[in-house]
């Protein structure tokens, strides 16, 4: 695995001057992914969403690699087409280089409107890495709920009201859905644990077939926390078991980070305005339910790891 020092000598794939919010984790995610991929020629695709919008405002692009943007729901199918053309042009001798393909999408473009395209692309086994920068809501359009939005989170379409305390449902487990497609590699990561993310990108790109990394990417305005806390919150999501870091390959689960003493979920929740209503008196049971669900899912993941370990 490349060290930070080695990475620092590579060309940046995503440069400055883009218009993401100060402290944006999604930009850090894409930057880290492209650095990790940067030792080989890479062509990227991206779904419409925050990162596409802030990085490609004509005539200014923050991308230092070829980037293909098509629409919101079709990052996976668009890159499928790029990869298909690559295969045939390579067969015909019109392309010489070995090129790797990375498709990016937010949770809106991946969990929801683009799920069908993602499913199709993995099933057809296009050799590409799909990276979901998951900021847990439709941040581009102003913080609306997605199926990645966690329980009780306030968004502008799952507002914390006087009767309903934010989103009523738990988030969809997209990583598991992808694993059910039997990809070559799948993982969860977050940019606070950058070395873990970088290692996973390298592994995914080396895998023989479609791969997927779901990257929890905290959102300053959407989650409601100070911009300097991005890395801290990214780490807290892992330390509180809210976002387990794990990977799946060859039918086996591996949890990459097992906190000896997990922090209470409230440590993660209390820093964010989207969960502020949970700390009003009378809502204690919601925090308890939330914690119980986090624990239940963690236990289930541990069992999966145990059941599939050699």
């Amino acid at each position: 695995m490349a060290t930070l020092k080695e990475l620092s000598k590579r060309k940046e794939g995503l440069v400055g001057g883009h218009r993401a919010c100060a402290g944006c984790a999604a930009s850090a995610t894409i930057r880290q992914v492209l650095l990790a991929a940067g030792d080989k020629p890479t062509v990227a695709g991206i779904a419409t969403g925050c990162m596409e919008v802030v990085t490609t405002i004509f005539p200014y692009t923050a991308w230092n690699v070829n980037l293909v943007h098509n629409a919101f729901e079709n990052s996976a199918s668009t890159v499928s087409g790029v990869e298909a053309a690559y295969k045939v042009l390579k067969r015909k001798g019109k392309i010489k280089d070995d090129i790797q393909f990375i498709a990016f999408g937010g949770d809106g473009g991946t969990y929801d409107i683009g799920l069908q395209a993602l499913s199709g692309a993995i099933e057809r086994r296009h050799k590409m890495l799909y990276v979901c920068y998951d900021n847990e809501a439709y941040m581009n359009t102003g913080y609306q709920r997605s199926s990645a939005t966690p329980y009780c989170a306030h968004t502008t379409t799952s507002p914390a009201g006087t009767k309903i305390p934010g989103k009523a449902q738990w988030r969809k487990d997209l990583t598991e859905i992808v694993i059910a497609h039997d990809p070559a590699y799948a993982a969860q990561a977050t940019p606070g644990y950058y070395m873990d993310l970088i290692r996973k990108v390298e592994k995914a790109l080396a895998a023989d077939g479609p791969s997927f990394i779901n990257v929890l990417s905290p959102c300053v305005p959407g989650w409601g926390y100070p911009s300097d806390q991005t890395v801290n919150i990214s780490k807290l999501a892992v330390e509180t078991l809210f976002w387990p870091l794990y990977e799946w390959q060859d039918d086996s689960y591996k949890i990459n980070m097992k906190p000896r003493e997990p922090k209470p979920l409230v440590d993660f929740l209390k820093l964010q305005a989207r969960f502020r209503h949970l700390f009003k008196s009378g809502n204690e049971h919601l925090v308890e339910e939330f914690q119980a669900e986090v624990n239940r899912r963690w236990e289930a993941l541990l069992r999966k790891e145990q059941a599939t370990s050699a």
Binding site: S8, K9, V15, G23, C24, A28, G192, Y194, T230
Partner: peptide
């Protein structure tokens, strides 16, 4: 340690020769 460099969302930490 380069932690700031790898975490900067705006590629704004300048690095030369590690």
């Amino acid at each position: 340690c380069l932690f700031c460099w790898i975490s900067c969302p705006d590629s704004a930490i300048k690095v030369e020769n590690e």
